[in-house]
Design a protein around this nucleic acid. Structure first.
Length: 819
DNA sequence: AGCACGCCGACT
DNA sequence: GTCGGCGTGCTC
């Protein structure tokens, strides 16, 4: 038997299967989806079995054997292996990259090289010439290794930085031996468990046999008489306040069993989830629920767009449809944007389905995530809830895939493979005959369009549960405010509203889409703007650290009191960041308690949760933050939502700017008045007449869509065409432009009927990042594989340039952002 | 991606 | 003459 293996070498030349023999001893273990260790050239690396063969086309003498199988159970299913192959063609990435993204990071192999002394090399091979520098070095190295038995190659090289050639030679001369192994980053966790005897009644007898002084042992036996269940050793000693020695002595008498057992690291171990039960559905919900229920029961592949306004009870629909799925003994995947994967959200699922839920998100440690993933793989759970990559949960019998906040850009992965979770969901639902629910209060234009053009079923839920009113929205023209002499960042209506809530002891959410203190620093004498030396972007001032920071590459420099260009002292900070708003709040409203949430305050593990809990417990009056406060939060006391500047998104150089603005405004407005108290929203803007702002203020999705669709049709943008964005980057601008031109020419020359337009090359919206200039081409086409294949060919034709000049080419199929 | 092989310039 | 630079090509 033979196996085709995709090896862990992400490059163009190795992006194909390699055949290996399956040794008889491994025959029963090697399956499609197995992770295996193989020799590849001189190295030992890992790979994935993608096919089993009776006969290989490669000459048998050239074939090596699989060395080892890394897991008892294949890491991937056949379905996922097929999907990876499809992804590599669709998103133009290496197949190995697609395979890797399906697994938790813990299973990414870490390769370690170890150096040891050859057994027969003894000290006689040492040079006896102490004056000879090389001999001296060699002696030192050999002594060093001798002391440690084996040394990691990296450690050796750090210890002897100039000796790499020498070490190489010693290996060739067989004085040193080099071994390489594939190591998992994380292993399964094992703990000692204490088991009562199979026959519990024996315990009473043992009690009599115990010597009178053995109080602790007696207690332990009594413990198991009371509750004859296995328990962790550490837990037992803690509960009975005893040492492990008493338990060990009981174990040595064979009265109790002590065994090492694999356990799951459970990040939610300490939480107690109260069991919750299905809520009574409203008439509107019931109708939607029944439609989806029927599909699940019919085991039919079907897409749904669940368009429910904020507060219409989408989550309850999710929970009850999942319940249907579980009844059928099928599995469900729930995707939630990373930032709304809050403890609140997790709790709703855990309290309904208890231990049947695995949660996957980036805040877990590698070990925790691995264990959650393993629960899925080993069929211990029925529901996987997580961010984007949870779409690859290795279930084998999926009945339902739910994608909440379907319009979120975070469902598109920014680096390779640049997949979109919604598209993957469609592929998987086809393979499993599963239902897909795309849920949103503000569906993306593409999805909305699709629901009217294709077999996707449109399920509207236009009213809030319990008849709660939508919040009232007031749009404030900031130009008018300025005219009337209000130079503060709070308009009079917002100022008044904040004051009002403070008096009433109600809570406020403020949204500002920009972190830091100010957006740019400019000299008023010469107009010099302080910008990043590595990227073409102005630096942002961060008050707390008194630094200017680049939000693209992380570069930071100290603040300065004079202009670096003309030395004038008239240097000023412009624009508004979250830090500045916080400062301004405290000075306008003395005694106000503010929680600021942005990347700067939530980078620490668990801090996100901490801040939200504090806000929920009303330890603060205001929650001020970037996008992350717009999503999914649900606090009963919040009655005012303020948007400091609606224009920040609107002014982005992207054809989706209006859509994103509408979505953000609608989402954040939904945070107000979700419970008994009525909500109010104040939107401050310099573009009060823009249709995205007006439609959002009227909660009028349909009219926004109509206008926006019209404008997309006119400019020919999605959904009226498909896009591929190709970005080139290099330190040398000349080379960049030349390559871009020739690429664009290559595409145009083919005159494919499916290509509508080839734009560019032009400088990217971020023209330089980390010292590399960036140019991009945008291809508008009618869909289908033809254009993707052509782009693939065109990129391949640049391969030589790429290799010789380190030019970087990135291809983004269906880009979500043109940056 | 690594790593070996192989072909040229600066040194013992 | 040889050491060591990095261009070229291969990995089942």
């Amino acid at each position: 038997m033979y196996a085709r293996v995709i090896v862990d070498v992400p490059s163009k030349q190795t992006n194909r299967p390699f055949d290996y023999k399956i040794p008889p001893t491994l025959k029963d273990w090697v399956e499609v989806g197995s992770r295996v260790g193989v020799r590849f050239g001189p190295r030992m690396i890992q790979g994935f079995v993608v096919e089993l063969l009776e006969q290989s086309e490669v000459d048998d003498r050239k074939l090596k054997s699989i060395e080892s199988v890394l897991e008892l159970q294949p890491s991937l299913t056949e379905e996922l292996v097929e999907l990876a192959k499809w992804m590599s063609r669709r998103y133009l990435c290496n197949e190995i990259t697609a395979l890797q993204v399906m697994l938790p990071g813990a299973l990414k192999a870490k390769y370690e090289k170890y150096i040891a002394l050859a057994e027969d090399s003894g000290s006689d091979s040492l040079t006896n010439d102490p004056l000879h520098a090389k001999g001296e070095m060699q002696n030192e190295i050999i002594h060093f290794i001798k002391k440690k038995q084996t040394v990691e190659m990296n450690e050796l090289l750090t210890r002897f930085p100039n000796a790499s050639m020498l070490i190489k030679k010693l290996i060739i001369n067989e004085i040193l031996i080099e071994t390489q192994n594939i190591k998992n980053r994380v292993s399964t966790k094992k703990v000692l468990m204490v088991y009562p005897p199979d026959n519990i009644t024996m315990l009473e007898g043992y009690k009599q046999e115990l010597s009178k002084q053995a109080h602790k042992q007696l207690e332990v036996l009594q413990f198991f008489i009371d509750q004859p269940k296995p328990i962790q050793l550490s837990e037992l000693t803690k509960r009975l306040n005893t040492s492990s020695s008493s338990i060990k002595s009981l174990a040595s008498k064979q009265w109790l069993k002590l065994e090492s057992t694999e356990i799951y690291r459970d990040p939610y171990q300490k939480h107690d989830f109260k069991q919750s039960y299905p809520l009574q559905l409203t008439e509107e919900q019931e109708k939607v629920f029944q439609t989806i229920r029927q599909t699940i029961h019919a085991k039919r592949q079907q897409l749904f767009l669940l368009h429910g306004v904020t507060g219409s009870g989408k989550t309850e629909i999710y929970l009850q449809t999942i319940q249907q799925c579980i009844h059928q003994n099928r599995e469900a995947i729930v995707l939630v944007p990373e930032i709304s994967l809050t403890p609140q959200m997790v709790e709703r699922f855990k309290s309904r389905f208890g231990d049947l839920v695995a949660v996957l998100h980036s805040r877990l440690s590698a070990g925790e995530r691995f264990d959650e993933w393993r629960k899925i793989q080993q069929k211990k759970v029925k529901v996987a809830i997580g961010a984007r990559s949870a779409i690859f949960a290795p279930f084998t019998n999926i009945g339902l895939i739910i994608i909440d906040e379907e319009h979120e850009t975070s469902y598109k992965q920014q680096d390779n493979p640049k997949y979109h979770a919604v598209e993957i969901a469609k592929m998987r639902s086809k393979a499993h005959q599963a239902a897909v629910i795309l849920g949103s209060a503000t569906p993306s234009l593409e999805t909305y369009y699709e629901s009217h053009q294709s077999t996707m079923q449109y399920l509207p839920m236009p009213s809030r549960v319990a008849g709660r009113a939508m919040p009232t929205v007031q749009v404030v023209d900031m130009r008018e405010e300025l005219k009337e002499g209000n130079r503060s960042m709070f308009s009079r209506p917002l100022h008044q509203a904040i004051e009002d809530r403070l008096n009433k002891k109600e809570q406020i959410v403020l949204l500002l889409n920009r972190r830091g203190y100010s957006t740019f620093v400019m000299c008023r004498s010469c107009g010099h703007v302080v910008s990043c030396p590595h990227c073409d972007i102005s630096l942002t001032y961060h008050m707390n650290t008194r630094h200017l920071r680049c939000h693209y590459c992380g570069y930071a420099e100290r603040e300065s009191s004079s202009c670096p260009s003309c030395s004038s002292e008239h240097i000023r900070y412009f624009g508004t960041g979250t830090q500045k708003v916080e400062e301004s709040l405290t000075s306008h409203f003395p005694g106000i308690r503010v929680i600021r949430m942005d990347v700067d305050t939530t980078s620490e593990k668990g801090s996100h949760e901490k801040w939200l809990n504090q806000f929920r417990d009303q330890k603060a009056d205001v929650l001020l933050g970037t996008q992350m406060v717009a999503k999914g939060l649900d606090f009963p006391k919040v009655t005012l939502v303020g948007v400091i500047a609606a224009d920040t998104v609107l002014n982005l150089p992207d054809f989706r700017a209006a859509e994103k603005t509408f979505q953000l405004l609608t989402q954040v407005s939904g945070r107000a008045g979700r419970h008994q108290l009525p909500g109010e929203v104040v939107i401050q803007t310099y573009n009060p007449d823009h249709y995205s702002v007006i439609s959002a203020s009227h909660h009028d999705y349909t009219s926004f869509m109509r206008t926006e669709l019209q404008s997309r049709k006119q400019g020919i943008y999605p959904p009226y065409c498909k896009l591929i964005l190709i970005t080139f980057s290099h330190e040398n601008m000349n080379l960049l432009v030349r390559t871009g031109e020739s690429f664009s020419e290559y595409i145009k020359r083919q005159q494919l009927p499916s290509i509508i337009d080839v734009l560019g090359p032009v400088a990217s919206p971020i023209p330089r990042k980390k010292d590399r200039y960036r140019f991009q081409c945008l291809i508008k086409y009618r869909g289908g594989w033809e254009t993707i294949h052509l782009v693939h060919k065109a990129v391949s034709s640049l391969e030589n340039t790429v290799k010789q000049t380190k030019l970087q080419v990135s291809v983004d199929v269906d880009p979500q952002m043109l940056m």
